[in-house]
Design a protein around this nucleic acid. Structure first.
Lengths: 231, 231
DNA sequence: GCGCCCAGAATATGATCAAATTATTTCTTG
DNA sequence: CAAGAAATAATTTGATCATATTCTGGGCGC
């Protein structure tokens, strides 16, 4: 009956007080970005309520949100699935990121503190270790977090939202492509960029990020132009 | 048990085959873009269920969707409101549209058919009539639909989504600014752009749209740098 | 001023109806 | 008689609602 024995507990573990639909959303989002959901895969509401052990309403809200962000696709007849991108779609994302990411890197260079620079350097080192060990999942997650942190530092919430939304769109495809290629020749112009940021050379940092984006995304696009060898 | 709530069939519109959450979403979206919801205004779920005469679940889903698109803001404590943009936010939107809109106009020029060109010309004429008559609501809606049609013709769904989402963010502010200024010196470089498209001069069309965007958005930004005189 | 309590709003559940896909059956035809 | 197609039955899934529960914020007493 009464639950007042539980106080908000503002210190530390406040994250457990998040509403269920928020938790479901984050869980699903991570699964789309790094993990288990492949492009084209169907997603059912009732399937998720079972798989995640949640009620129907929170799952529905999380799905609506992901559809609005382009992470899921509403296939006409009440059917929802992970979008299957075309080569043209990838090209659109490339052209958008080619503009957005350098712009954000430029702003970040003008604003970044030394502590934040150390933080990014540390993240990049962890990223390198994941690549060496061939840990694909860790690479995908760390690489994403590196770029996302950069967006935050740029202090442009709306532009950061746009860039973030693009990751959600090409995440599943990126995973498929990287899964086929292994973690060997993954792009990493991060060190160039960090050096440019240290020197407060915003133009050079923007150029480095642009190359990083192009290298990574072009690999994705190339693999989409090949004949689709799935069965 | 009680099943008297048989298919309300609200309004008798032919499209009553769409789910309720979709209808609520469109209704709310239009109200945010053109109409009745002012920046900073609070939005409550129960208030909407009453005002729109709908159930709670569809309203919740529509709100989640609009939050994900940036049209509404989740204010921490279970409070939802129409975002109040800062001058910096407006600057972000300007810089994004300054890139997105010309890019889409360029693509549209390469792809547009003569029928579609006539359609846009017709839309622009209607727009002019709304301006002459000082009909603000009609101006906002027709101007939006003109640009949106252009996005569709560009045949780049992901980029179009990005551009469309920006309208949802600055819509309420645009309405406030235009409401203060009347419909007299509104920007309309549409005729330049249509002429350029007729000549298949994509660069010139892109430049015209860029000027249209800058003129309109700068008016918004200027009015945000003034001391906020509301109350 | 501080803490407790209450009203109201948001979150979450489960039930129920409707629609759609799948599986099955039956009928027709070669 | 067999095979395929159309129709129908059954199961699965989505949409919506009514209701219970939890949380936030403000009012009231101390």
């Amino acid at each position: 009956m009464n639950k007042q024995a539980r106080k908000p507990d503002s210190g530390g573990g406040g994250e457990s007080r998040l509403p269920a639909h928020e938790l479901i959303y984050r869980q699903l989002r991570d699964q789309i970005l790094f993990g288990d959901l492949a492009p084209g895969q169907a997603v059912t509401i009732q399937g998720l309520t079972d798989r995640l052990g949640a009620g129907m309403t929170p799952v529905r809200e999380a799905i609506r949100r992901l559809i609005a962000e382009g992470a899921l696709e509403f296939q006409g007849n009440r059917r929802v699935s992970v979008p299957l991108l075309s080569a043209d779609n990838i090209s659109e994302i490339i052209v958008a990121r080619q503009w957005l990411d350098p712009h954000l890197a430029l702003r970040a260079t003008e604003r970044i503190s030394l502590e934040e620079l150390d933080e990014l350097t540390e993240m990049d080192a962890t990223l390198d270790r994941a690549i060496e060990q061939g840990d694909l999942r860790a690479y995908l997650e760390l690489n994403y977090r590196f770029h996302k942190r950069l967006y935050e530092i740029a202090d442009a919430p709306i532009l950061a939202d746009l860039a973030d939304g693009l990751w959600l769109r090409f995440g599943p495809s990126l995973r498929v492509v990287c899964g086929r290629m292994g973690t060997q020749n993954l792009p990493d112009k991060h060190k160039d960029m960090l050096a440019a940021m240290h020197a407060r050379d915003a133009e050079r940092a923007a150029r480095a990020i642009r190359e990083d984006v192009i290298q990574g995304m072009e690999q994705v696009r190339r693999s989409f132009e090949l004949p689709v060898a799935s069965f």
